[in-house]
């Protein structure tokens, strides 16, 4: 019953402000989902149907309570030849992407991100499933990181 751990000590973490972005996003999703699943119960006056939105609400509350820890679990590291990324508490995920595999780097900013001065960095390879998205980076950091990654990828260019 132990978590996966790699022999890596220094993870670079995302900004603690990202907790708010995650919280608000999940809260909106929770309201929509719980609201939509309550509709059948409201219209049919069947009390038992309320169990579905209620159980969903409990799941959402647990997820919301765990948000700070989940955000703290997101980490990345620039190793000499690859980018290492981790996320997840209950469902842990580690990804290693060689720099030479980079096709492009995206920087996205949602409305909440913008209000808090954060950015989201997406590392795209030829494989659609790679899915390395580093959220909650301060704007300046994201841009430095992007330039750093592009330079690293350029120096280690490989074929497809």
């Amino acid at each position: 019953m132990s978590r996966l751990e790699l022999d890596v000590t220094e993870w670079r973490r995302v900004s603690p402000k990202y907790v708010w972005v995650d919280l608000v996003g999940m809260l909106i999703a929770a309201i929509i989902v719980v609201g939509a699943t309550s509709l059948p119960a409201v219209f049919t006056h069947n009390v038992y149907l309320f169990t579905i939105p209620a159980s969903l609400a409990i799941i959402f509350i647990i997820a919301l309570a765990l948000t700070p820890r989940r955000v703290r679990a997101i980490g990345y590291q620039l190793r000499s030849d690859d980018l290492l990324f981790r996320k997840g508490l209950m469902f842990q995920r580690f990804v290693s992407v060689p720099y030479g595999r980079m096709q492009l780097v995206d920087i996205n900013r949602g409305p909440l991100d913008r209000a808090l001065g954060l950015s989201e960095l997406k590392f795209v390879t030829a494989a659609a499933a790679t899915g390395v998205v580093i959220p909650g980076l301060p704007e300046a950091d994201a841009e430095t990181l992007r330039d750093e990654l592009v330079a690293l990828a350029e120096s280690r260019r490989a074929g497809l």
Binding site: M1, R3, Q92, F94, R101, A126
Partner: peptide, 21 residues
């Protein structure tokens, strides 16, 4: 190996209990 784009390691709650990944 020369064609690998990235490598992912996953573990969910059940796998953690069984020490699997």
């Amino acid at each position: 190996q020369a064609r690998i784009q990235s490598i992912t390691l996953n573990q969910g709650p059940l796998a953690r209990r069984l020490r699997l990944a």
